[in-house]
Computed example of a mutant assay.
Amino acid sequence: MAKTKRTPVDFSELGGFRYLHFGSEWIQGGMRINRPYSLALEYQQYMLALLFFRPEPKDILQLGLGAGGLAKYTWKYFPDAHTKVIEISEDVYMASRMWFKMPDDDDHLEVVFEDCKKYLAGAANTADWLLVDIYDAEAWGPVYDDVPFYRLCKKALRDGGISSYNVFGGEDFTKSLDNISKAFDGRVLVMPDVAEGNRIILAKKGPKETYSVELLDQRAAELQASRHLPAKKIWKKLKQENNLKGEFEF
């Protein structure tokens, strides 16, 4: 096991939600107490917009565990997929187990303790989905947010694979979007701001594909019923933010 980073962790509760903190007031994850496997935070729901383009992943790679919301969701609702989580802090993992109902590792869930950039250096063509949510206690922005890092992310994806990045909105968003766009040759879509100030960027690897808005409207309705996610709302936001009409390439 790689040497892990020590992280001060605690939690708060408000209005039926439990929130993870890294020794500050910044929220690093959350859980609806009476629905622990649903996605409690809007930005996490938006990260799942990649569902519309790759609805049946076999291998899911997640960078950053937080309270385990994304990992728990894919573990429960994608039982045929294998989710691997790269997390640098064993303290964060233990907090997710004690307070946020993170399940044990099993045949389709694995947590690896390592710096995500070091892990990516040795990963190539291994993931259908890549979910990137990497913040430290200061929460000034993603821990890695440059073109070389995003190129490593691209390398980890298989052709046709898709990635989702939680970045800051506001003035910092343009930098993140430019860097991801450079790494992925402009193959990006964006989600609007959420209340917490985050924004989500989707980036896809491989040859461009043509998608029909009408068919994705239908897919969103199907996913809403089968994946316990407000998929119709997410798809509507994605369409509006990127002005998607008729047929489009991504």
Rank of each mutant, 00 (worst) to 15 (best):
D128Q: 03
D128M: 08
W129I: 03
L130V: 06
L130M: 04
L130N: 01
L131R: 01
L131E: 01
L131I: 12
V132K: 04
V132S: 13
V132F: 10
D133S: 02
I134C: 15
I134A: 03
I134W: 04
Y135L: 05
A137Q: 08
A137T: 07
E138A: 13
E138C: 15
E138F: 11
E138H: 15
A139K: 13
A139S: 15
A139E: 08
A139H: 05
W140V: 15
W140T: 15
W140D: 11
G141T: 02
G141F: 03
P142D: 00
P142G: 00
V143N: 02
V143G: 07
V143Q: 05
V143Y: 02
Y144R: 10
Y144Q: 04
D145A: 14
D145L: 15
D146H: 15
V147K: 13
V147R: 12
P148K: 11
P148D: 08
P148Y: 14
P148G: 05
P148T: 08
F149Y: 15
F149G: 14
Y150E: 05
Y150S: 05
Y150K: 07
R151D: 10
L152S: 10
L152W: 10
L152N: 14
C153H: 03
K154H: 13
K154S: 13
K155L: 07
K155Y: 07
L157T: 13
R158S: 07
R158Q: 08
D159Y: 05
G160H: 07
G160Q: 05
G160Y: 13
G161D: 11
G161E: 07
G161Q: 07
I162S: 06
I162F: 05
S163T: 14
S163W: 04
S164A: 12
S164I: 09
S164D: 07
Y165D: 00
Y165F: 12
Y165V: 03
